[in-house]
Simulated assay, not measured.
Amino acid sequence: ISMRSLEERTLKFSLYDVDRHKKHNVIGHVLYHLRDLELAKDGRTIFKRDLEKEVNEVHSVVKVTMSHQNKPVKTKKTGVVKRSRDPAYNESFSFKLEADKLSTTSIAVVVMKYEPPPKADKLIGRVVLGSYMFARGKELEHWNEMTANQKEQIQQSHALTT
């Protein structure tokens, strides 16, 4: 990362409480602007900050799009989750697909910051599931597990990319 790019970035450390139902509840955050970074001779730095409550609550929505040969075929959208930095979506979607089209189909899961019309929703992050043509690593493994167990609900967590 260039120094200029580094100076424009901020690290956000989040502290969570995980309850017995494995639900993650945000306790607070600490922001550290990398422009303030001063490394010691050993390459380490120690800093102390008070934990802050989250104040920037957003409304988000998830769009799930099935594409065949990179052309969107069907899009479904969750309801809007209001006033949450860590929204949970308890919705499921089903898509019908012929077996011979599995290798040329992908599913994009896109998390958006909801903006009321006429504004456009803003991208927070996305993940694409599909065959080797569209996905790698965990996303490809998830796709393979879903296609091998078509009558079962397969859940996995994925990191979003922008």
Rank of each mutant, 00 (worst) to 15 (best):
L6A: 11
L6P: 07
E7I: 08
E7M: 15
E7Y: 14
E7N: 13
T10I: 15
L15P: 05
D17V: 06
K22A: 07
K23N: 15
H24E: 09
V26D: 07
I27W: 03
G28D: 08
H29V: 15
Y32D: 14
Y32K: 06
H33M: 04
R35M: 09
D36G: 05
D42H: 01
D42P: 01
G43K: 01
T45H: 08
I46V: 04
F47H: 04
L51I: 11
L51G: 10
K53F: 14
V58T: 07
H59R: 08
H59A: 13
S60N: 07
T65V: 04
T65G: 02
V73T: 10
T75A: 02
T78R: 10
G79P: 12
V81N: 08
R83A: 06
P87I: 11
P87H: 13
Y89H: 07
N90Y: 12
E91F: 06
S92R: 10
K96E: 05
E98I: 07
K101G: 05
L102W: 01
S106H: 08
I107W: 00
I107T: 04
A108C: 03
A108R: 05
V111P: 00
V111R: 06
M112H: 06
Y114R: 07
E115A: 10
P117T: 10
K119L: 11
A120I: 11
L129N: 02
G130Y: 00
S131W: 01
F134Y: 15
A135V: 02
A135D: 01
K138R: 11
E139Q: 14
N144A: 02
N144F: 00
T147F: 02
T147C: 07
A148T: 01
N149E: 03
K151G: 09
Q156C: 03
S157Q: 12
L160K: 04
L160T: 11
T162D: 10
